[in-house]
Design a protein around this nucleic acid. Structure first.
Lengths: 257, 257
DNA sequence: CCAGTTCTCGTACACCGTACAAGGACTCTC
DNA sequence: GAGAGTCCTTGTACGGTGTACGAGAACTGG
């Protein structure tokens, strides 16, 4: 095991995954176990949020002292990395294979990824902070890679197409999930929270003056549909844009060749 | 002023910007000032990173006690919101107006936004966590909105096009800046850090087996060009995809009408 | 039963954000 | 110049945080 203080110095140790470490298993008095720790941390993260998770609380939840956890894990960050990879595993890669063509595959992957980010509001901040190179995250990355390869896009264009789609999904999922988190913290539904926010916004004359047109558009959109419908539709439209864009690039390459 | 404990309860107070508060100005013994505090915090954030910024250190930097800051600000979060909006102001909106057409405008906005995220590594995590509704952020948002309107896209498609482009930029900038941050923490250049990481990756047989093809592609790309060249090129290609996609959607709407 | 390993715990340290109340510094009025 | 009132700064304290360290409990194999 590696002390937390040593971790930062060596880039090869900047992630749990870049170091061979046997998963120390339970059998001790408390029946602890890395899997149990990670599962409990995911449950607590989903319920209470990233900011509220502490080693002491997690330990209490497991009927144990904070320091007991450090037998199975070097650092709080490690737990987050394990938790992250675990939820990457929720993306259903088998369902992706069943899709008809690369367009549907991209749509499925993107939707599943987005849903995962929204389901686990702590994922966006975490995914931005750590290297995402656990086995499940890598499997997802490879599936994305394979799918983009199917488009026929040339090799040196593929990484940009991958990031165009999936960095978008990350950004979209981040906004959506953080909005949901804030609503939940205020004890409201998303729609209620949205109305409250717009009202607070309207009361602030400085801000309101600055935007004029923008607010009416937002009002118009939300008067017809609930926020979750809007999230879904906008996301679908954006994927249309991305897929159309990839098709164009493929066609241009075909012409040029 | 509002106590930190009260902030969470009221959604109308979930941001500094949603509350009328005069900027309390200096004149006291220490010559403190909200602008000075925000400027100092940005400097420290850029140099030391988000995790290292504390009220006590920031105060020391300003030759003052931690509690003095609370005269000008309710909360540490407030400082971050002010700092965020301040760097949104670094995006050169006037330059965008000078561009020839909406394609160039989108490119300029996206590039400036990305550069800002990379320049200030603490922005990505912060922007994901707070509402971005300070005056400068709103101004950027409105410029994006106006630019997308120029494409001729119908009203209900615009938000999705906006997010397709700028959520992508956010995701891309996040990855790029966090990679840079990690490299800096390890005391290396980005290219050195990349090589080290790939080597550590290669040494891990479990991970290495899983990817096979992927690694060769990465090697091939980085053997020709430095990472910063690759970042730039991939970003440009991805914008090509997005712009092409928008053009297709505009054309489809024209046909349908 | 005993030795050795595996696991748990109590204590402690250095830090964090910030509530509260005392008091210094400046400004304005007479 | 004296006094009042406001503006600003500070010291102290509370309840948290991650985790280093060493003692000791529990379990395992001989």
């Amino acid at each position: 095991m590696v002390k937390a203080a040593d971790r930062a110095k060596n880039p090869a140790r900047s992630s749990v995954w870049l170091e061979k470490r046997a998963a120390r298993s339970g059998g001790g008095p408390a029946g602890l176990d890395r899997d149990r720790i990670v599962a409990a941390s995911i449950r607590m993260l989903d319920e209470e949020g990233l900011a509220k998770l502490s080693m002491r609380k997690l330990a209490t939840e497991l009927g144990v002292t904070a320091m007991s956890l450090y037998w199975y894990v070097d650092t709080k960050d490690d737990i987050l990395e394990y938790a992250m990879d675990s939820v990457y595993g929720e993306i259903d890669l088998a369902a992706v294979d069943a899709a008809a063509d690369w367009r549907d595959r991209i749509r499925l992957l993107a939707l599943d990824y987005r849903r995962m980010l929204v389901r686990h509001g702590w994922m966006s901040p975490s995914a931005g902070q750590y290297l995402n190179i656990g086995p499940n995250a890598i499997a997802v990355g490879q599936k994305i890679h394979d799918t983009v390869a199917e488009t026929g896009l040339s090799l040196d264009r593929r990484p940009s197409a991958m990031s165009a789609v999936f960095q978008f999904v990350y950004g979209y999922g981040t906004v959506e999930s953080q909005f949901g988190r804030r609503a939940a913290e205020a004890g409201m539904s998303q729609d209620e929270f949205y109305v409250e926010s717009v009202n607070a916004f309207r009361d602030d004359t400085d801000l309101a003056e600055q935007v004029e047109g923008l607010k009416e558009i937002l009002d118009e959109r939300t008067s017809h549909d609930s926020l979750s419908v809007i999230w879904d539709r906008d996301f679908g439209y954006a994927l249309d844009v991305l897929i159309a864009g990839i098709e164009v690039m493929v066609a241009r390459e075909a012409e040029g060749a």
